[in-house]
């Protein structure tokens, strides 16, 4: 096994949450991705051993879901929504702006491993269309100008914790609803920031 002790400890904690071990595969794949930025063959082997099912079964689960990346992702995963409410609110323009800025096509990562770009299906921000997520933190009500500013900010500041509220305040516009709560926690990688995976942090 090549996960370190603290990862294995975390993994065992996750497995215990479920009546049957196999249910932990999903969370363990998120955990794997928080380590490497993608699902490595090595992680597949570790999960297979921890859960007690074959590697190919783990692999078949990992390739089903779009959030488990089969190739390494950059520090920032830029996911621009293209579903109906965003589509009719000019998401194509936002997609073009991000493509131009990063020089990337869909599902590509730049050579500095800074950005990965993807056009994605509905992220549940339809009232604030067009919208995108950076490492699964949502920004709503985007304009082309603000999208460029957001990308520039990421490139220059390279924040370690991505916080939806911070991005929304500086670069967002119309929201799906009043966010109201001034949360200061966010994600620490190109994975969902969530307590169970140790991938969320408050801003210092």
């Amino acid at each position: 096994m090549s996960w370190n002790d603290s990862m294995i400890k975390q993994a065992k904690k996750i497995i215990k949450m479920y009546p049957q071990k196999r249910s932990a595969i999903g969370p363990l794949l998120h955990l794997a991705q928080s380590k490497d930025g993608y699902i490595s063959d090595d992680s597949i082997a570790v999960i297979s051993e921890l859960v007690g099912i074959t590697e190919v079964q783990v692999k078949s689960v990992s390739t089903f879901y779009s959030m488990y990346k089969q190739e390494p992702t950059g520090k920032y995963l830029l996911s621009v929504c293209k579903s109906i409410s965003c589509e009719i609110n000019n998401s194509k323009e936002i997609i073009d702006v991000v493509k131009d800025f990063t020089g990337l096509n869909n599902n590509e990562t730049d050579e500095n491993d800074l950005f990965t770009f993807e056009a994605v299906e509905c992220i549940g921000a339809c009232g604030g269309a067009p919208a995108m997520q950076i490492n699964y933190e949502t920004v709503e009500g985007l304009s082309s100008e603000n999208t460029i500013k957001l990308c520039e900010w990421l490139k220059e500041e390279q924040p370690d914790v991505i916080i939806a509220e911070e991005m929304q305040d500086n670069f967002g516009g119309t929201k799906s609803f009043d966010w109201a709560i001034k949360d200061q926690s966010g994600t620490t990688g190109s994975v969902p920031g969530f307590q169970t995976f140790n991938t969320t942090k408050e801003k210092k």
């Binding site: 998120h30 879901y65 959030m67 996911s79 992220i123 549940g124 997520q133 699964y136 933190e137 949502t138 939806a164 949360d183 926690s185 994600t187 969902p192 920031g193 969530f194 307590q195 169970t196 969320t200």
Partner: peptide
Amino acid sequence: IRGEYAKPARRVQD
């Protein structure tokens, strides 16, 4: 909770 709803999931977990 869908994976893209990280913030809602954090609030629920808290």
